[in-house]
Design a binder for these strands. Sequence first.
DNA 1: ACCGGGCATTGATTTGAATCAAGCGCGCGT
DNA 2: ACGCGCGCTTGATTCAAATCAATGCCCGGT
Lengths: 244, 244
Amino acid sequence: MQGSAQTISPLRIVPRSGLCDACQVRGVAACSALDNNELQRLASIVTEKKYDAGATIFEQGDEPAYIFNLTSGHVRLAKTLANGRRQIIGFVYPGGMLGLATHGAYVCSAEAIGPVKLCRFPRDRLLALLDELPPLKTRLLDIAADELGDAQEQMLLLGRKTPLERVASFLWRQYQEAIRCGQTKPSIDLPMGRTDIADYLGTTIETVSRTFTRLRNDGLIRLEHANKVIILDAQGLEEIAEGL
Amino acid sequence: MQGSAQTISPLRIVPRSGLCDACQVRGVAACSALDNNELQRLASIVTEKKYDAGATIFEQGDEPAYIFNLTSGHVRLAKTLANGRRQIIGFVYPGGMLGLATHGAYVCSAEAIGPVKLCRFPRDRLLALLDELPPLKTRLLDIAADELGDAQEQMLLLGRKTPLERVASFLWRQYQEAIRCGQTKPSIDLPMGRTDIADYLGTTIETVSRTFTRLRNDGLIRLEHANKVIILDAQGLEEIAEGL
DNA sequence: ACCGGGCATTGATTTGAATCAAGCGCGCGT
DNA sequence: ACGCGCGCTTGATTCAAATCAATGCCCGGT
């Protein structure tokens, strides 16, 4: 499977690019912008890394030595205030990038929610490579612009939505993401716990829990168990999410 | 002044690039990445636009036909919820970009706070030009990564800071920005009103007002008038902002 | 199968910011 | 110079979500 040549490349040096051939997320990831030849250049600077559940991939304030591409598992990005209050900036799904946003240092920490695999690129080498791989630079610009749009949507949520609207928005987005990934049933598997959800939505674990219960009682969702949500009324959920 | 040749360009076609020669924000703006030759290519697709105070430059949801560079005045970026609740996503200062973040449409509206001048680039032509001007693409990627970092900082503010910390953070950032722009006195001129500040900080006009009063009573600031703040205790302000 | 611990839910109480409601002051136009 | 109006400040009250406090449930280990 690794050696199977769907690609017809003349010299099969392939430093470790067998990885990319077998990559599960190649279609979604940043690499999707590249042809096989270009991909090999990228592959020449990549290292595959694994982390256990709960492990820290990098810390807010660290020198941003690497940029990552998540190939399997889920990651949370978090910022922490002096007194311990925590805000989750976002969740990363397979195919997503880590470490793009910086101000000279990582602006947030990245933690593995479950066991995680990712492709690690030395930042300086990746940035140097960008000048030789214009499609990749374009792709990264697109990704950054998209993430910026997502971030702005989250600001609206945090600044102006009620807890009910926040949870509904969260579920709605998870649902859309699941659909995008080929899910056909109206259900969501939540890889993260209530604490993470609360810290993402700028509220408390108790409020999140009560809100789930309320959505259940109102017939919008069913809770198969705490981490498996069945969407019963997608439109109703969206309307709540949009503040209608 | 317009025709003054500091640059030695062979053919002086210069569609309207006299503009760039005289540009006040050339050092800070995205164009700073370009040499004079490259700048002319940019200048060939630019149109200068002016807007009155309160004017809408573009609307959330519009087709993102243009990307802008603010040359003078201040802009607010806002998103609005069905029932009228508004969240200000950010304020743009001279030299800043508008319209970078998109998801196929402008993700927020841009409104002139006071009278405003900006350079307008047709999006498709600018993006096409990026492939010929790699330094500009790099610069835009840098700008996007920076804005992403700012957005994440704002999420922390909206999700986890108290109103006091929010206002202190806001003033602190304004102060840093003023210093960056060459300001030497410890004072800030606020181009926006209390309503804009409240909508930016995810709180109400009354709370903002009370918090200004409290910071004044606690000796951290002095209010020369509503829009002119003197910083009396910069360190104290920063400590509050950081939640210490 | 039983026990223990961590996570989620549910309930009671408190609290701080939103809302409601006046005043105040400054700038503008006449 | 005067009065008008808008935007800011200040005060009183309400209310929703945070906090405090049990209780329940599921999973993993023995």
